[in-house]
């Protein structure tokens, strides 16, 4: 245990990269999920097809392949190299955004038809109906599955070690293990605990948002919805 301090300080040097990838990835995921999810429900067939291709293409291939593709292939096609951490954010966002799009689509469709009709009867425009009436209600349904999705994304940041982003997994495997091989158990346990703490933070934030969103529509956060989200699982 005498090296615990060293382990902690070396691992924490990787924290900024892990956090950047996680937060950046989550931000991009939210944007892409909403855009692609609403596009899946668009009245225009062209828009629906484009969004469908994005969703199925990204869900149908491996995240590691997507990472290598953006890191090694895209530069050949576009002529410049992307900074590894941003390539990472891009892949994490693109990949999880495809899963998030289905969450958004499902949640929007789960809002009762009567709510659309109430909004139509008041003369609201299609955009106003979506933004003011439907989305605020759909968000309540989205939050529990998004919690799972964001934890998946946090876990996925570890693959950035493959393209030499010095995040915490790479710090453990490239810096600590070669120096303290007999203490591999302690090193990786510590690393796993750091991920656990980060995922608990994500869950705490999401639960808070669930309560806020549920209160806005006059409901308690439904334990059932969260459980269903856990059972359906996106990985």
């Amino acid at each position: 245990m005498e090296n615990l301090g060293t382990f902690l300080s070396v691992l924490s040097e990787g924290l900024p990269e892990t956090l950047t990838a996680t937060i950046g990835g989550i931000a991009l995921t939210i944007v892409l999920s909403l855009v692609a999810g609403l596009a899946l429900l668009s009245p225009s067939k062209t828009v629906r097809v484009i969004s469908r291709i994005y969703v199925e293409g990204l869900r149908g291939t491996s995240e590691v392949v997507q990472l290598f593709w953006i890191f090694f292939v895209l530069p050949v096609l576009v002529g410049f190299q992307i900074v590894p951490i941003w390539a990472g954010v891009l892949v994490l966002g693109l990949n999880h955004g495809a899963y998030g799009a289905e969450i958004v689509r499902g949640a929007v469709q789960s809002v009762p038809r009567a709510q659309y009709e109430g909004a139509i009867a008041l003369g609201l425009s299609p955009a106003q109906r979506m933004r003011r009436v439907i989305l605020p209600q759909a968000v309540v349904e989205m939050l529990p599955p998004f919690n799972n999705l964001f934890i998946q994304l946090l876990k996925s940041t570890a693959i950035l070690s493959f393209v030499s982003v010095n995040e915490i997994t790479r710090q453990a495997q490239q810096v600590l293990v070669p120096r303290f091989n007999p203490q591999a158990f302690e090193i990786f346990m510590l690393l796993l605990v750091i991920y656990l703490v980060l995922s608990l933070i994500i869950t705490a934030v999401m639960r808070f948002l669930e309560r806020v969103a549920a209160a806005r529509v006059g409901r308690r956060p439904s334990a059932e919805a969260r459980r269903q989200a856990a059972g359906a699982g996106v990985a």
Binding site: K155, S161, S199
Partner: peptide
Amino acid sequence: EFIRSTPLLVQIYFLYFVLPG
């Protein structure tokens, strides 16, 4: 809960480096 919330890649390294010990 612990295994679900942590990266598979780290778990792979864990087994790979720890089991021989």
